[in-house]
């Protein structure tokens, strides 16, 4: 049987792959996908904690799963707004490469 440590390590690895995508890739859409991976890693550890820490009635702690539901909803809204911003940015600058977007650079 997989233990809690298995799930936490896999979730941490997924988070670090997402973090690597955000840090190493220069395409703004791929950076956005890395953000989604990181959100999903957080969801995985929340669900694992909810399943491994049973309440006194012997059922999983569903509060954790409700939080995951909220995270998924917020992530969907975030993707919609973020992609709209990327499209507006592409219209103005004709690029999705972050090194070509230096208007806000100090």
């Amino acid at each position: 049987m997989p233990t809690l440590a298995h799930y936490l390590i896999v979730s941490g690895l997924l988070f670090s792959i997402g973090l690597a995508g955000v840090l190493l890739r220069r395409n703004i859409l791929i950076i956005f996908m890395g953000l989604e991976l990181m959100l999903n890693a957080a969801n995985l550890s929340l669900v694992a904690f909810s399943r491994f820490n049973l309440l006194s009635d012997g059922m999983p702690n569903y509060n954790g799963q409700v939080l995951v539901f909220f995270i998924i909803t917020v992530a969907a809204a975030e993707v919609a707004v973020g992609l709209a911003i990327i499209v507006a940015l592409f219209r103005a600058k004709q690029t999705t490469h972050v090194e070509d977007l230096t208007t806000l650079k100090f």
Partner: peptide, 10 residues
């Protein structure tokens, strides 16, 4: 408790 296996639900 990280090495605990999945407890059975009631």
């Amino acid at each position: 408790g990280a090495d605990s296996t999945k407890p059975a639900v009631s």
